[in-house]
Design a protein around this nucleic acid. Structure first.
Lengths: 210, 210
DNA sequence: TTTTTATGTTACCGACAAGTAAAATAGTTT
DNA sequence: AAACTATTTTACTTGTCGGTAACATAAAAA
């Protein structure tokens, strides 16, 4: 009978993740890319496997099934979007508008990633009831954050809006829509589009000079 | 050998469409509804047939295949959107901004229909190359129209925009995004949302009083 | 009545893709 | 060496669904 294993502290250093985790992550990254590019249903797991130079059953070693893969992709994307809200600097330092604009820029940046696009583009109708419920929870939280920023801006007078709820929807909707066509127009790249979008949303179409 | 049939003028009156056309249209309407609600891939033709109280092969009497159905739905939706541009009153009567806002409101209204949502929500990646090409042509035309309105507004000073191209994308994208929500939030109905969206786009978030 | 045309149904096929079982391989431990 | 563990493959099953063939029915035409 072997004695108790001696703990090797550097073996558990967080940056040294197990190979399994790395591979699982690679599967997820590949899935996110192809899901977001070609759509969930049009993507077969054989394709995902091929990208990784493995065969389909290998994927099942890392994920229970296709839906679990999609759920992980969407969740990761939503987690990134939610983290955008946590990077919000302490309220009071800047106006609500400034904080909102900074938030929207970070939000748009996440939407440029494969995970972000998965979260935004793929309908959660693909998911099981349980997964969808979790996804909806995070989406609600993100929406709440945007509304909060809008409300703060209204309070401090830096934002004019009659309805934070609809405004929050409109902002998210407008930014999410970027992901839908930006691959059609490869010439204008992400950040520029996002900046123009945000400028439009901030300033509006109507001229401000008189 | 029968003599030449005597033409019966009232038989060809345009409002008296053949039963076949009516049924074909019913198929299309049912397809548009369920495609836009549940998505193309998640919809089986058996479902569509069931809605109409027929069996699947009957659908094939009216359409060549599933993709032809989808194409007809999308095309009809896009035709409606394109018609929105034709309803534009003579230029010169009003400012570019007024014309654009009126356009956007009609556009949003179309997007409340099943066909409009099909056109906007379902990726044209589902279509064959030939169909997609046609669809893209109409989409380009719609985009051109929006750009034209924006440009006119810029010229007459009623619209402030640095880039009509991105602005047109942003406008369409924002309105299209309405279709993604509105079933989740049944309490706020279409036109109200659209009006708020448009108001935001026109006035912007930044307050105009000083 | 017979024939033709339009419309619909039953019963089926075939393909594709998700998912699984079980064997193969390689690395590690005993 | 032997045994065990982790990982991946080959080969297979299975369900779903788009699509079709062939027949049924009924109305209109001849």
């Amino acid at each position: 009978m072997p004695g108790p294993a001696i703990a090797s502290p550097w073996k558990k250093a967080p940056e040294r993740r197990s190979e399994r985790d790395l591979k699982r992550e690679a599967v997820l990254t590949a899935a996110a890319r192809v899901f977001s590019e070609r759509g969930y249903h049009r993507t077969s797991l054989d394709e995902v496997a091929q990208i990784l130079n493995v065969t389909k059953p290998t994927l099942y070693y890392y994920f229970k099934n296709k839906e679990a893969m999609l759920f992980a992709c969407i969740q990761h994307g939503l987690d990134m979007l939610e983290a955008v809200g946590d990077a919000d600097p302490a309220p009071g330092e800047r106006t609500g508008m400034e904080r909102l604009v900074a938030y929207l820029k970070r939000y748009a940046k996440v939407n440029e990633t494969d995970f972000g696009r998965c979260a935004v583009r793929i309908s959660d109708a693909e998911l099981s009831d349980a997964s969808r419920k979790k996804v909806r929870r995070i989406k609600t939280e993100i929406d709440r954050k945007i509304r909060e920023l809008v409300s703060n801006g209204i309070e401090d007078g830096s934002i004019a809006s009659s309805d934070p709820k609809i405004t929050a929807f409109a902002l998210a909707g407008a930014l999410n829509s970027i992901g839908h066509w930006h691959q059609r127009d490869a010439d204008m790249v992400g950040q520029k589009i996002a900046d123009e979008y945000i400028a439009l949303l901030v300033k509006g179409l109507a001229p401000r000079t008189r």
